[in-house]
Computed example of a mutant assay.
Amino acid sequence: MSRAGITPNAISATSLVFAILGGASFIIAGHQDEGAWVVFWLVGAAMIQLRLLCNLMDGMVAIEGGHKTPTGELWNEIPDRFADVILLGCAGLAICHSEDHADLLGAAAGCAAVMTAYIRAVGASLTGRHDFCGPCAKPHRMAILTLAAILTAIQPLGATDGRIMWWALAVIAIGTMLTFFRRTLRLAAELKKRES
């Protein structure tokens, strides 16, 4: 990629395209009849992994390829925030039934993901280092979401009630909020330590 002249910012933007395609696949999967939904759950899972691959490659091209740009940090962070909300929110919409509030669960997971990134950025501005601790950091969230999409696709034909994805979103929402609080407590402890 570096030799081909592909910029890290373009790779970061492509990660958002994959997230949009993944979110769209989830919504389509949730509105298909019979077995057609299987393919779209699997496409969504593949798009998550391609998004993560872009996240890996943009940094490598920027640092190891020597193609850092003044706006690189913005391109590294902003598409990720949109991608989290799109993928988690669309997963909730895909399995939304009026009585289970999966749409709200997906939205809550997306908001929690943004909050964990926010506290990480605040910590970096105050301490000069990023805290990527879990239990539900981005790689963990996307692993759970990918696995849930695959399991939803391969569950017995006709069992399309979305229970697997519902529980996955619940785990992500709760785990991500725990991550937010853990990062906040770790940051507070670090700041107190520096003060003393």
Results as ranks from 00 to 15, higher is better:
74 L>C: 02
32 Q>L: 15
80 D>C: 05
119 I>W: 09
68 K>H: 07
30 G>L: 10
89 G>V: 03
83 A>M: 02
133 C>L: 11
139 P>A: 11
145 L>M: 11
71 T>G: 12
92 G>R: 04
109 A>H: 02
31 H>N: 12
130 H>A: 13
105 L>T: 11
57 M>Y: 06
164 I>R: 10
103 D>M: 09
36 A>S: 08
166 W>E: 13
120 R>M: 10
31 H>A: 01
42 L>M: 09
73 E>M: 14
102 A>S: 11
148 A>H: 04
168 A>P: 00
129 R>D: 13
56 L>E: 00
101 H>T: 08
140 H>P: 00
75 W>M: 13
145 L>W: 06
138 K>H: 03
152 T>P: 00
74 L>T: 08
47 M>E: 01
63 I>F: 01
35 G>N: 00
65 G>F: 09
66 G>I: 08
145 L>D: 08
121 A>Q: 07
153 A>M: 12
100 D>G: 02
102 A>M: 15
86 I>A: 03
73 E>K: 12
41 W>V: 12
84 D>G: 07
83 A>I: 14
91 A>L: 06
107 A>P: 00
68 K>L: 11
166 W>Y: 14
150 I>L: 06
151 L>P: 05
152 T>M: 04
82 F>Y: 10
111 C>M: 15
95 I>S: 04
99 E>F: 07
33 D>R: 13
150 I>T: 02
69 T>Y: 01
127 T>A: 04
119 I>H: 00
132 F>I: 15
49 Q>W: 06
136 C>G: 07
143 A>G: 03
137 A>K: 02
103 D>Q: 07
162 G>I: 09
109 A>N: 03
157 L>N: 14
130 H>Y: 14
130 H>L: 14
60 M>L: 12
94 A>K: 05
45 A>S: 06
117 A>R: 13
38 V>I: 09
66 G>N: 06
73 E>W: 06
61 V>A: 06
109 A>Y: 09
119 I>E: 11
95 I>A: 03
117 A>H: 07
40 F>Y: 15
64 E>G: 05
31 H>T: 12
65 G>D: 02
100 D>I: 11
84 D>V: 09
71 T>V: 14
35 G>H: 11
116 T>Q: 15
65 G>C: 04
89 G>H: 01
104 L>V: 12
125 S>L: 11
88 L>V: 04
153 A>Q: 11
109 A>V: 09
112 A>V: 12
155 Q>R: 10
161 D>M: 13
122 V>H: 11
50 L>V: 10
33 D>Q: 15
69 T>H: 06
141 R>L: 04
110 G>S: 02
132 F>A: 14
169 L>K: 03
74 L>I: 14
85 V>H: 06
120 R>Y: 04
147 L>R: 05
108 A>S: 01
45 A>N: 01
41 W>D: 09
143 A>M: 11
68 K>S: 10
51 R>E: 05
146 T>M: 10
31 H>F: 03
75 W>P: 07
95 I>Q: 02
149 A>T: 06
60 M>D: 07
95 I>H: 03
102 A>L: 09
91 A>D: 02
